[in-house]
């Protein structure tokens, strides 16, 4: 065991590990916080949908040799607003809006991959992500955007809470629920793009969903859910990075399995302590 710890500390000397921990922590925290609101609004699958949209967006960026993260952000933000617009129309259900947008995103990516030929490998590398190869610029972007997301949630905390609990009541209180929803989906779009580097397109929604549902098992208040979700998210990313480093596992998938372990542990604790 001491040897394991000494190796762990030694690994932290590597710049790529430091970058992975820093970016992973910030992205995990912002995903966890937003995930709580999304899960409670029954809008959790928007992460999945936007992840699929980012597949098309990254394909577009690679085709035109643009930076995949920078230029995906506006595309995914627009897609998030499109999903919200569709979901607010009474004739399209929220999950259907997400589903059709996701399908369009994947179809775009596949078409571009087919047209672009040579860059297929680059595009498909985004499917499963690898936080260990994240660049210093992407780390800075992750910190900046995560801080923006956390600041928005802190400023709008009560509005997000009351809207999540009962949107119509929130409106009667004069809460600008439409703008609150816009803020929520735009922040989600930002974190999804960042999360792609951590766990990849296919697994990015897990960063939003798992910590929230684990926290919901044991928390007794709304603030408690946010705190537990943040803890589970950061713990999962840290343990996932360490485990993938030591046992040479794919980092994204390892993080998801640690998250799943947290969910099982939280469910067991809830049963044990009757929460």
């Amino acid at each position: 065991m001491p040897a394991l710890f000494s190796e762990l500390f030694a690994s932290l000397g590597f710049a790529f590990m430091q970058r992975a921990f820093v970016a992973g922590t910030f992205v995990a925290l912002s995903c966890a916080i937003l995930g709580v609101f999304l899960v409670l609004r029954r809008f959790a699958l928007i992460g999945e949908g936007l992840g699929h949209v980012s597949f098309g967006a990254i394909g577009l960026c690679l085709l035109f040799q643009l930076h995949p993260v920078y230029f995906s952000i506006p595309i995914v933000v627009i897609a998030s607003l499109w999903i919200l617009y569709l979901a607010e129309q009474s004739k399209v259900q929220g999950d259907a809006a997400i589903g059709l947008t996701a399908a369009l995103g994947v179809a775009t990516g596949v078409l571009l991959a087919s047209l672009g030929g040579g860059y297929n490998v680059d595009l498909f590398s985004y499917l499963f992500g690898n936080i260990l190869v994240i660049s210093p610029t992407e780390v800075r972007l992750s910190i900046l955007l995560s801080l923006v997301v956390v600041a928005v949630v802190v400023l709008l905390y009560h509005d997000l809470f009351v809207t999540a609990f009962e949107e119509e009541y929130a409106r009667v209180q004069g809460t600008p629920t439409r703008w609150i929803n816009v803020a929520l989906v735009v922040c989600t779009a930002l974190t999804v793009v960042l999360g792609i580097r951590v766990v990849g397109i296919m697994l990015v929604s897990s960063l939003l969903i798992f910590p929230a549902i684990s926290a919901l098992q044991i928390a007794r208040s709304f603030r408690g859910v946010l705190i537990y979700a943040g803890f589970f998210a950061v713990f999962s990313v840290w343990l996932g990075i360490v485990a993938s480093y030591f046992w040479d596992l794919p980092t994204g998938a390892t993080i998801v399995f640690v998250n799943f372990g947290c969910f099982l542990a939280a469910s067991a604790a809830a049963r044990l302590f009757g929460r």
């Binding site: 208040s221 709304f222 859910v225």
Partner: peptide, 10 residues
């Protein structure tokens, strides 16, 4: 409100 985690005070 099924499954909503808020306390009465909140």
């Amino acid at each position: 409100h099924r499954g909503f985690p808020a306390s009465v005070r909140e």
